[in-house]
Design a protein around this nucleic acid. Structure first.
Lengths: 218, 218
DNA sequence: TTAATAACTGACTGACCAGTCATTAAATAA
DNA sequence: TTATTTAATGACTGGTCAGTCAGTTATTAA
């Protein structure tokens, strides 16, 4: 005879928790996508981690791909919204803005679980093209525009040298995204230590090339 | 009645071509790995592209992984050998060496089919760890050492500012590798044009931060 | 209390694919 | 010419997994 323990809720096999399921599924999925990639993540495992059966997944999402879609939509887009608002309202020297922007990216994406998403999308782009297209349209283009606009602003106000802004924007983004990809792919196989100076030096190098006044030294 | 055409070699179902098979298999495999990634490439397709049956693949390579192993070993390692030799024999200003090194990488890797390999390894690192470890040990570490040594040389000779060489090396490599990853993943989904200026500007920015004499302008 | 609803379950299906091996046939030796 | 060797074939096996659906059970309505 087993007595029911309300904490473990052994009295019933399951509860109906319609409200909570979607978030729990997305969190479980992101964790597994990060660990194994999209293709190698099994729906049974997502279900297990979310505390439900596989069938229930399909009550809330119509396919594996739609889960990933939702992860990006609900986790990344709000971050970009925030940064866009910050840039729009910023008053002050453009080099300070750019420095804060890079640091904000590092803090809000680079050092969080969101950092796994670029690597996942890149890895699966060949086999899941709609997913890649969605990511480019909703994340990449917005992020690129953000940096391009800031650099343009600096050029227009005369704070920065006259440069080709598209390439500069990509040169700013590259080491940041590269670091997150590295983090989630080959870093575990590399015993060399990447110092914290990496981002600081990146900012320093970029600003040194952009800022007109050479007496300025970061 | 069909007459045999010696060019199409319809007279026999196949030829024994022990010598040529391995290279043909590796070329077919790299092409498919580039297009679909490692996991999604079917051995039947590698066989078909190499003009043989699947069983024959297994006469020459013991597994799918060993084929990838061979691709890296036989295609990438020789490139690094060449660059190492070039650096070792170089006489002249270190900034010129660094500039040539970046350009050489772009020409010999970035713009060739080899550019697909980093993306493939990164994508599959979670599911094929031995493959990732092999790549880190035989490619990443050697490449990183190459750049670190050149920067150190510039610092020692007094041509470059005193910098933390590990981070600088990674800041040099990041935009290069990032561009190849982009090329083979999200570029097809992006209609924006990446100008040729990207690499030139990268070189210019890096050297501006490294070279001591500020009157020098690239 | 009983009936109706819908959240949830998990065994099952159909498709896919790396790797195997019995067989075939090209090349070579006897 | 015949026997032997070995490159090459492709049907098959065993395992995996996304997605389905008939049935079960918690919840709510009557």
């Amino acid at each position: 005879m087993v007595f029911s323990n309300p904490l473990l809720d052994q009295s019933s096999r399951w509860k109906r928790r319609k409200e909570d399921r979607p978030d729990e599924i997305l969190n479980a999925a992101l964790e597994l996508f990060t660990e194994k990639g999209f293709a190698a993540t099994r729906m049974d495992d997502v279900a297990k981690k979310a505390g439900i059966s596989k069938g229930t997944l399909y009550n809330y999402f119509e396919s594996k791909e739609s889960i990933f879609h939702a992860v990006v939509q609900e986790m990344i887009s709000p971050e970009i919204d925030k940064v866009e608002a910050f840039v729009a309202s910023y008053q002050g020297p453009t080099d300070h803005l750019l420095r804060q922007l890079i640091r904000a990216w590092w803090t809000n994406v680079g050092e969080t679980r969101l950092s796994a998403i670029p690597k996942i999308v890149i890895s699966e782009s060949g086999n899941f093209p709609e997913l890649a297209q969605f990511f480019v349209d909703t994340v990449v283009k917005r992020a690129r525009k953000l940096f391009t606009d800031v650099v343009s602003k600096g050029v227009v106000t005369g704070e920065f040298n006259l440069v080709e802004t598209q390439s500069v924007a990509r040169l700013i983004i590259a080491p940041l995204v590269y670091a997150t990809i590295w983090q989630h792919s080959l870093k575990p196989f590399d015993d060399d230590y990447l110092s914290d100076e990496y981002v600081d030096m990146h900012i320093k190098f970029i600003l040194k090339s952009l800022i007109k006044d050479q007496r300025f030294d970061v």
